[in-house]
Nucleic acid binder design. Structure first.
Length: 346
DNA sequence: GCTCATGATTGCTA
DNA sequence: TAGCAATCATGAGC
């Protein structure tokens, strides 16, 4: 929609324009050379103003500037432009209308939440993210190698965070620059064209939407980078580490001292996890593997069982004790004992 | 490089 | 949902 195309006016009911608009020529254009139109006619009626504007493209730059200046001085100009703005609102401009109060994009919200959770977005936290830190701490508590990797992980996460913020800043700067440029341009143009403040707002909104699409892509690629980093550092299969000797001993001691019921309760698992510096799920994995491998190789396991039995006997003789509860401490365990015995003899 | 040990994962069952 | 069984992937010893 520009000021040189009068088509939107011709679509209006005659009451809107007939007294003002010059007669149309046979090819559908306005007769710029109508004898009633004086080229130097001052901007003192709407018909004349329209004619002056329509013919402005045929003039030299100086002439056009002079006419534009005179036009801006006209007392009718504000009302005239207001009418034209209303016409634009009611006609062609509606095609470009879009809902101004879009619901928040769910994908964007998911990405924002993830970036927050990973410590990429939001205020910087010591040690990076809380969730990833927790999982990394569990992994890193076993040995120094893991601790080093933890540091490496955090360094890489910080790198991603810095890159994300620097890119985000660039996008925001570019968006603001471009928006203010367009606003200035439209305001300048509004001196000679019917551009309402609402139309400017709409244009700003369009620009912001375009830039937010770019931001979305940035957030997506940042999330991907974090995912790749996490899978590289946290993929347990690739980074499998044997538990420390102490941890294995603690677990074996519990296993063989509860051989008839090698099913630690949640509390026992937590205690074992704390003692061994591993997670509860690792304790569960260990007992799962241990039970199945014990069952498969009961001969060899028996030797190991004897070893731990004598060790426990020594501890008992010295008045020590492992601190963990023994077999048949509870009715629940007695029931479990029956269960495991029937399973092992399957 | 091969073999065995071992921690983790997956699919299934009760 | 916990546990079993099979399997994968990696570590460690030789």
């Amino acid at each position: 929609m520009d000021g040189q195309d009068p088509s939107y006016i011709s679509n209006l009911p005659p009451s809107h324009y007939s007294p003002m608009i010059p007669p149309l020529t046979t090819d559908g254009k306005y007769n710029m050379y109508d004898t009633n139109v004086n080229e130097n006619k001052p901007f003192n009626d709407v018909n004349g103003m329209l004619q002056q504007i329509m013919s402005i493209v045929d003039q030299s730059l100086d002439e056009a500037q002079a006419r534009k200046h005179a036009f801006n001085q006209s007392r009718l100009k504000p009302a005239f432009f207001q009418v034209l703005c209303e016409i634009k609102e009611k006609t062609a401009i509606n095609i470009r209308n879009f809902p101004e109060d879009d619901p928040p994009d769910s994908q964007l919200m998911r990405l924002d939440n993830m970036l927050l959770a990973e410590g990429i977005a939001g205020p910087e936290r010591l040690g990076g993210s809380s969730s990833s830190s927790a999982s990394m701490n569990a992994a890193a508590s076993i040995n120094d190698d893991s601790a080093l990797e933890h540091g490496d992980y955090r360094a890489k996460l910080t790198q991603i965070r810095q890159l994300y913020h620097s890119e985000l800043e660039k996008y925001e700067q570019a968006c603001n620059d471009f928006t203010s440029h367009v606003i200035n341009l439209l305001r300048e143009q509004s001196r000679a064209r019917p551009i309402s403040p609402r139309e400017i707002d709409r244009m700003v909104s369009i620009i912001r939407k375009k830039f937010s699409t770019i931001q979305l892509q940035l957030k997506q690629s940042t999330c991907e980078a974090v995912m790749i980093l996490r899978s590289r550092f946290l993929d347990a299969r690739r980074k499998r580490r044997n538990f420390s000797k102490t941890a294995t001993e603690v677990l074996n001691e519990y296993f063989y001292s509860h051989l008839s019921n090698p099913y630690p309760s949640e509390e026992a698992k937590e205690e074992l996890a704390r003692k061994c510096g591993i997670s509860v799920s690792q304790v569960s994995n260990w007992f799962g593997n241990k039970r199945i491998r014990y069952k498969k190789n009961i001969g060899k396991a028996q030797e190991e069982a004897n070893l731990y039995a004598s060790k426990l006997a020594n501890q008992a003789a010295q008045g020590g004790g492992g601190g963990m509860h023994r077999d048949s401490d509870s009715p629940h365990q007695a029931e479990s004992t029956r269960k495991v015995r029937s399973r092992v003899t399957k």
